[in-house]
Simulated assay, not measured.
Amino acid sequence: MMRVRNGYANALGAATLALLLVAAPAGAAREAPDPAATFATVNGTVITVGEYAQALRHEARDSFYHGQPPEGGLARFQRRVADALVERELLATEARRRGLSPDAEAVEAGLARLAERGADEAALAAERGRLEARSLIDQLEAVVQAQPEPDPAAVRAFYDANPALFTEPAKLKLAVILLRVNPGEGSTAWQAAHEEAESILARLRDGADFAELAEIHSADGSAMDGGDLGYVHEGMLAPEIEAAARELTPGELAEPITVLEGVAVVRLEGRQAAQLRDFADVAERAAGLLAREQGEQALTTLRETLLAEAEVTLRDELLEPAGGIGADPDER
């Protein structure tokens, strides 16, 4: 049976308990439920209103910039936290059934950090339960997801069924001359850079050597290599350069391109189409991906099985949307 932490009532902030106020008919009084009261039972184990409130506070703090869900999202937020509490209890109980124990050192370290921030004994007692459950669940997940090495035939089947995972993206081979413009400079500097880029472009079209001009004019790191960027995967370039390069044929120059760093003169040197890598080259990676997928599926199956077989009762009336975190009851 989960221990009911009566002392936690004093550690709860009024803003968190405000979430638990039940919507009442007009004119009726609204009262916050007793933190020691039962919020849910999971296979006979009690989850208190106080523990639910603690979970709401943690999740709100971690999920929302202002510590409260968006307008209209309170009911979904409450339900999500309630479902997570039920799952936490199921997984922690399963971990104990398998003989796992909380990592005492990690739990104490977490409590020590909280104590340094001034938490009182009631808050520390409540946090201990959360940290112990988290430790148990982390260990359980690691055990469940640890899968034996996949059968070679299964690995090959996984490779064949997921070509996108083993396809090397298309590549572009580019040369660039970057005329840098500092962010703080005004339109005059940008105009001057464009005019210089037009002049360089005209010289290149008249037969000037790209590498030579890059060494003289380019502020890019590739200048000493004659502006040669080598082959670059699509998606790794500035969007403006990539969009222009798609329209070029090898050897063709683009019109000057404005990018974040300045103005660029670009020439497409070549392109490589996306290519599926040979199975022999990626077999080890395929095996790792398959094992991870099997581990994730095993964990999902465990969660679904535990929930399907569980006896869960929940005070659904405490999930009624009753206003934002921190709202004054008299103002709702």
Rank of each mutant, 00 (worst) to 15 (best):
Q294L: 13
R96S: 13
L90N: 05
E132P: 00
E59D: 11
E252L: 07
F39R: 02
Q294H: 13
A14G: 09
L290T: 00
M2N: 12
A286M: 08
A192C: 07
L165S: 12
V86H: 08
L100D: 03
A14Y: 04
T188G: 11
D209H: 03
A283C: 01
G44W: 13
Q275L: 09
R205N: 14
N10D: 14
E331V: 15
N43P: 01
A26H: 08
A189Q: 12
A75T: 02
E234M: 13
A287K: 08
D34Q: 12
A244W: 01
Q68N: 14
T48R: 04
R3C: 12
D220W: 05
A109P: 03
F39Y: 07
G129T: 06
G221D: 12
A157I: 00
P169Y: 09
L179W: 03
A153I: 03
Y65W: 15
A23S: 10
E168A: 09
A298H: 05
F166P: 00
R292G: 14
L17F: 05
V176E: 15
T301H: 12
V282L: 10
L131P: 00
R134I: 05
I241V: 15
V144Q: 01
A310Q: 14
V143Q: 11
M224N: 14
Y231R: 14
A287T: 02
E149D: 07
T301K: 09
N162Q: 06
P70Q: 12
I200T: 01
A202C: 07
E121W: 09
D151I: 07
A18K: 03
E317G: 05
Q272I: 06
G288P: 02
L100C: 04
A197N: 02
P256C: 11
V312Q: 09
G207P: 10
E215Q: 14
V312F: 11
E71N: 09
L20G: 00
E234P: 00
R271H: 14
E132I: 02
S222R: 13
V266Q: 07
E87W: 04
G27D: 04
A26V: 11
A154I: 04
A219C: 05
L237C: 03
R88N: 06
V266I: 09
A146M: 14
N43Q: 13
A32G: 06
A75H: 07
H58T: 05
V259Y: 08
Q145E: 13
G227S: 08
A274Y: 06
A36N: 06
G235L: 12
E309Y: 04
L172W: 04
